[in-house]
């Protein structure tokens, strides 16, 4: 024969009494304003923590994807200054395979005498080529044209062809070029 077990509940606290109900911890009536403030504070802390955590991750990822350095360049020896007479030019091949024509326009022997035009169109980066019959550089991408000194003469380009930096040291001509090719 089993004994029936009835669940027992503590007697309800008498609201008329001020003291704590028997069996309960002492409790001050909740301050709704303070509770609300603490709730907002903890929500804010949570949002801040999440933003800081994912934000840090996002910054790391963006920095990881952003290319580390500008393309490496270096100074390369071209020839003795006297090797190119004023009004003459010399064809030079860069490490990445690009061909550059270095022309001498003055006779002072300083770097300013020399011009090394890049064949990269300043418009959108295509390679220009020399059109002998028209005495101009022509860009096949958007029909840009340049005079023999690299100044824009037609089409969308508004800037001249870029020039490679040159320097003269101890009578030797140097050119600054990109060191890495694509392949």
């Amino acid at each position: 024969m089993s004994e029936e077990v009835t669940p027992t509940t503590p007697p309800p606290a008498d609201p008329s009494q001020d003291g704590p109900a028997p069996g309960c911890h002492a409790e001050t009536p909740a301050d709704p304003e303070r509770r609300g403030f603490l709730g907002s504070l903890s929500s804010l802390a949570m949002a801040g923590g999440l933003a800081a955590g994912y934000g840090t991750f996002g910054c790391f990822a963006a920095r990881y994807l952003y290319p580390a350095h500008a393309a490496a360049t270096g100074w390369m020896f071209v020839c003795e200054v006297g090797r190119i007479a004023p009004g003459e030019a010399l064809a030079y091949k860069l490490p990445d395979g690009a061909k550059v024509v270095i022309a001498r326009q003055g006779s002072s022997g300083a770097a300013e005498d020399f011009v090394a035009l890049s064949s990269v169109c300043p418009h959108l980066g295509c390679q220009v080529h020399w059109e002998g019959q028209n005495s101009r550089f022509f860009c096949p991408c958007h029909n840009g044209t340049f005079d023999p000194s690299g100044n824009p003469t037609g089409g969308p380009p508004k800037e001249p062809l870029p020039r490679y930096p040159l320097k003269v040291e101890d009578g030797l001509l140097f050119i600054e070029v990109p060191l890495e090719g694509l392949a």
Partner: peptide
């Protein structure tokens, strides 16, 4: 400039 560098992985078309 930022967009171009992010797209190409450098200033010009490169190994990346």
């Amino acid at each position: 400039t930022l967009m171009k560098r992010m797209l190409l992985g450098g200033d010009t078309y490169n190994a990346n």
